[in-house]
Design a protein around this nucleic acid. Structure first.
Lengths: 144, 144
DNA sequence: AGCATTAAGGATAAACTTATCTTTTAATGC
DNA sequence: GCATTAAAAGATAAGTTTATCCTTAATGCT
């Protein structure tokens, strides 16, 4: 479904969001450890997310990644996926046609649109705030 | 969403299905041309689909690929995807966790299940027979 | 039987994704 | 200012997917 980049990115951001309340920055080592991902690779991904203002970071001692209150409320999973996968997930043709639309549809076009729309809505409606709730932290896992 | 392998495979099979009525085998050159895919690569994919009894093939002059009446009725897109992608699309975790289930769910587990279930149903309910109907042939495109 | 034709199979190459390592830049405390 | 810490940035390596090419096997025709 998603690329590794996107999977690690989502897990990392969710984890950072869950730590947001402590108001402490969290380092890449801790993050990679918490979500069980390759550290250097995850660092690259977070670099990209920082550039795109999904998460914030600060260098130096006691530095690390964090998410401010505003982003916690405004960022949804959709935003993260957009940065890491572009919008091909939402616009790409199920059969891989370069142009596939209502005028020149592939045989699956209209059926696919439905599924994708569901996915999009789900990602749009899932906010970092929701995923950083106490219940979410205790009931769900980011590694196994 | 799907791999190139799966995209080409689906398009190839749909095209072959659409030619089924003529009762003529259709060669790899004609198929690759009709669906605008790399010929040798598509041949490999069809080889795999032939082994798994999705399509049939016959060598030699006037040989090629075809789909018999029974498969036309029984094969759904789901069967093709299963062969070419395995079942990871249906079972894999959205966040890439190796084990993710109702007991140890990732934060997206239950939301993802819904989406995947929709996709699965759609693929199961879309048969080659439907896709080879006259309307389907005239109204939809397999290349652009 | 011999030849032409077409898919199957194997080997290899190109492109892209995933992953790691090293150097540079920025922030903090002394 | 200097040492230390941690992210940013750049270079490179490993692995996987996508793609091509060449040889082999099967089929039909003469």
């Amino acid at each position: 479904m998603f690329s590794k980049t996107c999977e690690y990115g989502l897990r990392a951001v969710i984890y950072i969001a869950q730590q947001a309340k402590t108001n402490e920055k969290i380092g890449i080592t801790a993050i990679a450890d918490a979500i069980d991902s390759p550290q250097a690779f995850t660092a690259k991904i977070l670099q990209q997310l920082t550039k795109n203002n999904i998460v914030q970071s600060i260098k130096g001692p006691f530095g690390g990644f964090y998410i401010d209150e505003q982003n916690l409320q405004n960022i949804s999973l959709n935003n993260i996926v957009q940065v890491l996968e572009g919008n091909r997930i939402y616009t790409g043709c199920g059969l891989g046609l370069h142009q596939c639309n209502a005028e020149k549809p592939c045989p699956l076009h209209f059926k696919f649109i439905e599924i994708r729309e569901n996915l999009k809505k789900m990602l749009e409606n899932t906010t970092l705030l929701e995923l950083s709730s106490d219940k979410s932290i205790t009931d769900y896992y980011l590694k196994n």
